[in-house]
Deep mutational scan, measured.
Amino acid sequence: MSIQHFRVALIPFFAAFCLPVFAHPETLVKVKDAEDQLGARVGYIELDLNSGKILESFRPEERFPMMSTFKVLLCGAVLSRVDAGQEQLGRRIHYSQNDLVEYSPVTEKHLTDGMTVRELCSAAITMSDNTAANLLLTTIGGPKELTAFLHNMGDHVTRLDRWEPELNEAIPNDERDTTMPAAMATTLRKLLTGELLTLASRQQLIDWMEADKVAGPLLRSALPAGWFIADKSGAGERGSRGIIAALGPDGKPSRIVVIYTTGSQATMDERNRQIAEIGASLIKHW
């Protein structure tokens, strides 16, 4: 067993022997301040990774656009098919120029040779490549099948209805392509620590998230040296922004954090800054 596999296998073990965790309302004060600064709703939840206990939450059962955070769930569904012998990570998928959609920095470079399922998941999570996500959605049967996968996990809230990039439209009061912070946090925890996926697939999923290259201005910008984070960000229309993450000190994750916002007129930089400040408060009061 590799060191990384050992780390993920012992996530519940280490967490069980940690000192009790206590909620700190100071972080919620910052979440509410972010709402004021952005002029928009902000949803927040913080779960203990081992027990699933909610440590703090704000608007945990209000719907927010998922945006690209759905790509972690998508690759979880792909990995479940791999575990069941219905898919192979090494299978190569070929596609054409007509398949390319807006923001496809990886797939646009491989029109000639195609990409493997493993490479597509890596591109979808680490670079948020939209064509990679659409190609992977095709392998599982489309958005409705991802929703069905989530329902089978016990998540009857999260739903995907459309493809990239239309799913980022974020129309107010439109339930399409949305989740709730509580539902997303619980589902992410199941994917990373539950028995739904094999140990190898859980490790692969967290490795992809740990290698995320496009979430630097968010929670990662607030992390002290030595902290662990595996995350996936999302951005959408109407001032929408979000991030889902597993993080913790001492090089291992111990909490799940989900943050979503929508309806702001603020710039992307300002949305990023507010999420980073929430992260800084979380870490300060850990």
Results as ranks from 00 to 15, higher is better:
V101K: 09
S281H: 13
E237M: 14
A123D: 03
W208I: 03
H151G: 14
I93N: 04
R220S: 04
L137R: 01
V101I: 12
K232H: 00
L49I: 15
A133P: 02
G279S: 09
S264C: 09
E210K: 10
L47N: 03
R271P: 06
P217Q: 12
A200N: 14
N50C: 08
S233E: 00
I206Y: 11
T186H: 15
G39Y: 08
E145W: 10
W227N: 03
H156K: 13
W286Y: 08
L74Q: 00
W286A: 00
Q86F: 15
I229M: 08
T179Q: 02
A84V: 12
L150H: 05
I171R: 15
D250R: 13
G242P: 02
F58A: 11
K284G: 12
D113H: 11
K53I: 13
S254W: 10
D129G: 02
F64I: 01
P25Y: 14
R202K: 13
E119L: 02
G154I: 03
H151Q: 15
L196E: 13
A182N: 12
F70R: 01
L100P: 01
F228S: 07
R63C: 06
E87F: 09
F64A: 01
L55R: 09
H285F: 11
A34V: 12
W286T: 03
I125E: 00
G43R: 01
Y103E: 04
T178G: 02
R59E: 02
R59Q: 06
M115E: 02
M153G: 08
H24A: 14
A148L: 15
E166G: 12
G226H: 12
L196G: 12
K284H: 14
D207C: 13
R63K: 10
I244D: 04
N173T: 11
D129E: 04
P217T: 10
T179C: 02
H151L: 13
T158D: 01
V82I: 12
S240A: 13
G39A: 11
R189G: 12
I125P: 01
I256E: 00
S68F: 02
S264I: 05
G90N: 14
D33R: 14
I243T: 05
E175K: 12
T112L: 14
A200T: 14
L146F: 11
L28A: 10
M180F: 10
G239H: 03
G279E: 04
R220K: 05
R118A: 14
G142W: 05
L136F: 03
R118C: 14
A170K: 05
P181F: 00
T112R: 13
L38D: 06
L223W: 03
A170S: 14
T107M: 06
L167A: 08
L247R: 02
G194K: 10
G76T: 07
D129V: 03
R202G: 08
L79K: 03
N98R: 14
I125G: 00
M67A: 13
F149Y: 14
W208F: 07
A77W: 06
H94L: 12
R241A: 04
Q274I: 12
I278P: 01
L150R: 01
L223H: 03
E26S: 12
T131D: 05
A266V: 13
L120K: 01
D155G: 01
T69D: 00
Q274K: 12
S96Q: 14
L146R: 01
V157K: 11
N98I: 14
C75W: 02
E166H: 15
K190S: 15
F58H: 12
A215Y: 03
A225L: 11
E62F: 07
T139K: 07
C75K: 01
L111S: 09
I171V: 15
E56K: 10
I140H: 04
L167Y: 00
R118V: 10
R91S: 07
V82W: 07
I45Q: 06
T138D: 15
N168Y: 04
W227C: 03
I171G: 15
D36C: 12
D231A: 06
C75M: 05
L38Y: 09
I54F: 11
I206L: 11
A246F: 12
V42M: 12
N173K: 14
R118S: 15
E87K: 03
A123Q: 04
I229N: 01
L191W: 05
D36R: 15
E46Q: 13
R238C: 12
R255I: 04
L137Y: 09
M209H: 00
T158H: 00
W208L: 06
G85H: 12
D155Y: 02
L120Q: 01
D177F: 03
L100Y: 06
K252W: 10
N173L: 12
E119A: 09
A123W: 02
L146P: 00
V117C: 05
V258Q: 03
V117N: 04
E102H: 13
E61F: 14
P25K: 15
L192I: 12
E46N: 12
D36H: 14
Y260P: 02
G226V: 04
V78T: 08
R159I: 06
E237Q: 15
A200L: 11
R202P: 03
E195F: 07
S281Q: 13
R162W: 01
P25I: 12
A77E: 08
H285E: 09
A132R: 00
M184H: 00
R255M: 06
K213I: 10
H94Q: 11
I140T: 07
K213R: 12
G52M: 06
Q274W: 13
T198G: 12
P181L: 03
A246G: 07
E26R: 09
E145I: 10
L247P: 04
Q204A: 10
Q204L: 12
K213L: 12
E108Y: 11
C75I: 08
L247Y: 03
H94W: 12
T178K: 01
T139V: 14
T267H: 12
E169V: 10
T179H: 03
T158G: 04
W163H: 09
T179W: 00
L196I: 13
S240H: 06
K53C: 07
P60G: 15
D113P: 08
Q97F: 14
A211Q: 15
M115I: 09
T186N: 15
V101R: 08
G194V: 07
M153W: 10
T267I: 09
V106Y: 08
T186D: 15
N272S: 09
E277P: 03
R162S: 09
L55N: 07
E26K: 14
P217K: 13
R159D: 02
E175G: 09
T178E: 03
G251P: 09
L73H: 06
K252R: 12
L205C: 00
E56Y: 05
H151M: 14
H24R: 13
I140P: 01
R92Q: 12
T139D: 11
T198R: 11
C121R: 00
L191K: 02
M184Y: 09
T131L: 07
T158M: 02
M153K: 07
R41H: 15
M268F: 11
L136Q: 03
S57P: 02
L167G: 02
E87Q: 07
A276L: 09
D113R: 11
E108D: 13
M66Q: 05
D33K: 12
S240N: 07
R159Y: 06
P60H: 15
Y95H: 05
V257H: 01
R162N: 09
L28M: 13
L247I: 15
T107K: 01
V78K: 03
R118G: 14
L197V: 06
G216Y: 07
D212T: 07
E108I: 13
Q204V: 13
G194F: 08
T187A: 09
A280M: 15
I206T: 11
M153Q: 09
E164N: 03
F228N: 05
P143W: 01
A132K: 01
T107I: 06
N130M: 01
A215D: 04
L150Y: 08
L111A: 11
K53V: 15
I54A: 10
E87C: 06
M180T: 15
L55D: 04
Y44K: 00
V29T: 15
L74W: 03
D83Y: 00
E164C: 01
A34K: 01
P143F: 04
S240Q: 06
P60M: 15
K32Q: 15
A40C: 06
L74P: 01
D177C: 00
K32N: 09
G43T: 00
L73I: 12
S240E: 08
N152P: 05
E145K: 14
E237L: 14
D99L: 08
T187S: 13
G76V: 05
R189V: 10
S80D: 11
A246I: 14
W227G: 01
E164K: 01
A34Q: 07
G90C: 08
T193S: 12
H24C: 09
E87G: 05
T186I: 14
A230E: 01
N152Y: 12
A84W: 09
I140W: 05
L38M: 12
V157G: 10
F149H: 08
A222D: 07
L247A: 06
I256N: 02
